[in-house]
């Protein structure tokens, strides 16, 4: 592999690392923060399943991003991922809700504008639609699951201690599913823009041949896993503390609802099944893991009485839908200008 390829990929890998460090908390934050699951166990399961999800089911959402903007050069992809990473950093610094999915889409549009490539408005509308749909769907799923689980627990008459043991196990399983779904859905944000540039030759190991896209998905998954293992502990503790007032049952439901939503927007298998059943399909689009969790928690809060809702968080989410892509788009546009005119790189 050429060292230049790695340099160009570094922005995507950095984005992957940041995603692992931050979004693992959406999957295991409450479990670890409330000490239902040890951080080491959570980090191990999370990193393993993130890589699996990225490598096995990551192609679907990545393809959609590729359709939004076919970034054909490595330098262009580098700046797109870097612009997304910088905007995620800046938005986080300002305490605003941020999603890597929204940042990368804004950055791709920035590239489209710089390269004077047309943006497919149909794909863009689908993507923006899913941003609104994602927390709403998560809330609806959480409400249904929460009601069903409460009904079950009421009738099962399990001992408090036994319920706790089952919940611990449930949080681990839900976390593993959540990590898989996170890897499958959000890997597109990390390496999606590099896929059209095909930076790697095919790699043959024994009987298996890994294409450039597959190698990218695996590498991106590993970057997320490194983020989980090196930097997620503090974030998990913080998220766990912030959401500490919700019960373990609600936490379990929130993680499951989040995971189902992320999986729905990433699974090609589900898409094929829906087509076969003659049902409308769900677009394969990278969505925000944080917003899926917040949507689920808000759904449960509404079920328990409207007073539990944190309106400021909701306001931040909506502001994020607009501010994040605009910021990322602007950074990408000006970044590409510098990369092309100062460093003499071919960016499209």
């Amino acid at each position: 592999m050429e060292p230049a390829v790695l340099i160009f990929l570094s922005s995507g890998l950095f984005l992957g690392w940041a995603l692992g460090a931050n979004d693992a908390a959406n999957v295991f934050g409450t479990a670890v923060g409330t000490r239902m699951v040890r951080w080491s166990t959570a980090a191990l399961i999370c990193s393993l399943f993130v890589v699996l999800g990225a490598a096995v089911s990551g192609a679907g959402a990545s393809t959609t991003l590729g359709k939004l903007g076919a970034i054909s050069t490595l330098a262009g992809a580098f700046m797109t991922a870097l612009a997304a990473a910088i905007s995620v950093y800046l938005m986080t610094k300002s305490g605003l809700s941020v999603s890597t999915s929204q940042a990368i889409v804004g950055a791709i549009i920035g590239w489209n504008m710089f390269a004077q490539a047309p943006t497919d408005t149909r794909i863009l509308t689908t993507i923006v639609g899913t941003w609104v749909l994602c927390p709403l769907l998560s809330a609806v799923i959480a409400v249904i699951l929460y009601k069903a689980l409460r009904l079950y627990l009421r009738h099962a008459e399990l001992h408090l201690v036994r319920t706790d043991a089952y919940l611990r196990l449930g949080l681990l399983v839900a976390g593993a599913f959540g990590a898989y779904a996170l890897g499958a859905n959000n890997i597109a944000n990390v390496v999606g823009v590099f896929i059209p540039a095909k930076p790697f030759p095919d790699l043959t190991i024994g009987q298996f041949t890994l294409s450039s896209a597959q190698q990218l998905l695996l590498l991106g998954g590993l970057a997320i896993a490194v983020g989980v293992l090196t930097y997620s502990k503090g974030v998990m503790m913080t998220v766990g503390g912030e959401l500490g007032r919700i019960s373990p049952v609600a936490a379990f439901v929130a993680v499951i609802a989040h995971s189902i939503v992320l999986f729905m927007f990433a699974s090609r298998g589900l898409e094929a099944w829906l087509i076969k059943a003659g049902l409308p399909t769900i677009p394969l689009v990278p969505v925000s893991s944080s917003q899926a969790v917040v949507g689920a928690v808000v759904g449960i809060a509404i079920l328990q009485g409207i007073s539990g809702i944190r309106w400021r968080v909701l306001g931040n989410i909506m502001l994020g839908w607009i501010a994040t892509p605009i910021l990322a788009g602007l950074i990408c546009f000006f970044g590409l200008f510098f990369l092309q005119n100062v460093f003499g790189q071919r960016v499209f």
Binding site: R35, M36, L160, V161, D164, P248
Partner: peptide
């Protein structure tokens, strides 16, 4: 660290 949320109550 069993039943962390209800330990104090129990």
């Amino acid at each position: 660290t069993l039943i962390p949320d209800a330990r104090g109550d129990v």
